[in-house]
Design a protein around this nucleic acid. Sequence first.
DNA 1: ATTAATTTTGCATGTTCTGCATTTTTTCAT
DNA 2: ATGAAAAAATGCAGAACATGCAAAATTAAT
Lengths: 214, 214
Amino acid sequence: MGERTGALGLRERKKRATRAALAEAAVRLAAARGAENVTVEAISAEVGVSPRTFFNYFEHRDDAFVMIDSDAGRRVRSAVVAAPARLSPLEAVRDALAAELADVEDRHELWRLRAEVLQQAPHLLVRSLGAHMADERGLAEAVAQRLGEPAGDSVGLYPRLVAATAGTAVRVAIEHWSAASSEAFLPIFHSAFAQLAAGLPASPPTTGARPADH
Amino acid sequence: MGERTGALGLRERKKRATRAALAEAAVRLAAARGAENVTVEAISAEVGVSPRTFFNYFEHRDDAFVMIDSDAGRRVRSAVVAAPARLSPLEAVRDALAAELADVEDRHELWRLRAEVLQQAPHLLVRSLGAHMADERGLAEAVAQRLGEPAGDSVGLYPRLVAATAGTAVRVAIEHWSAASSEAFLPIFHSAFAQLAAGLPASPPTTGARPADH
DNA sequence: ATTAATTTTGCATGTTCTGCATTTTTTCAT
DNA sequence: ATGAAAAAATGCAGAACATGCAAAATTAAT
């Protein structure tokens, strides 16, 4: 257990590499022949491991397409709680998510490919949502904590709404970004949150990126 | 196809009854022993049909827990397009959804039971979302059409955001309602949309209160 | 009652996913 | 380095999900 932070053992590194390889193979195969026609056997063969090993890394086949960072949720929660008091709950959540989503810009090719796959297979997009939704409850609690509400299993409507709406905004931003391939992600992201903060008025504000029209 | 509204043939009625029976059996069994431990065989046996018949009614086993009304989406879309021009897009969507959700109040026992099952099984909640999300794209197009945007596959960010956010509000309202068992659903629903229209400000209006507008 | 249409069902088959025992690889202490 | 311990990969068996096809049963229409 003497793993030093930042210096991972060979074993752990190999594990992560295998997991990443399986996820990437899954996404690429799905992009090529459609997610429905990608069997666990094919993914495993692509990486060079046994089908049984696949299930050592992913509970469900579809999880390989989604790529969940289980640490992201925790980071977002603590960032929300620790955010400056002057920020509104929505702003605090927005900034916490923005910090996390820097990764999207960096590895944007992989993300775009994944987004493309998810678009064509609704049930996968849905599963991706599920991953985020496990966080949603915790995020709602973080918002409640930030507001001084007592920590309990019964969170108020408002924290729930902020958490869920923010997650939805992220999803919509990613979907829209992956559809309109010429725009950068961050402006879209901020535009979405600006419109939310404005109460989704009839005339969308010209914030950041102008409302893309045709 | 010559079915008159309200006067359905015996055949159609039997089909609907079977489908409803399967869905109800699925939910009840899930509430009793946990959704994971409910096999298709068990559901079918409960209703008295063969397992093969189950799959004539539901593509996937989990669909039996969700209860999708495939007509609802269409009704909501046309209601959004036909809504008075003075209403903002969010208001139009809100009212269209409200009309549809009257059913929740009526059969509230079944809905509460279902919500309970979904809460305990995240992947089912996620699938339920998926059902709504199939509608979401169409709803976004309806909003775009309402705004005069040309109908195409590339809908702007704003219509997407309105559609997705509204759907999220519905989900959160149902979740919160099923958690706080003493409140009526409609006030929660309207409170959620009021907070959305206000831009999710730092100080939430008294949650659970009466609908602010209308 | 006969005929046609629809639904239900059984059977075969492929895929997903799990449990368990075995083999292989990595790690650690000597 | 070498051998023991820990962890991961694998093979195999089996349950459950899901689909296609054809036969049997039920319903509708003449």
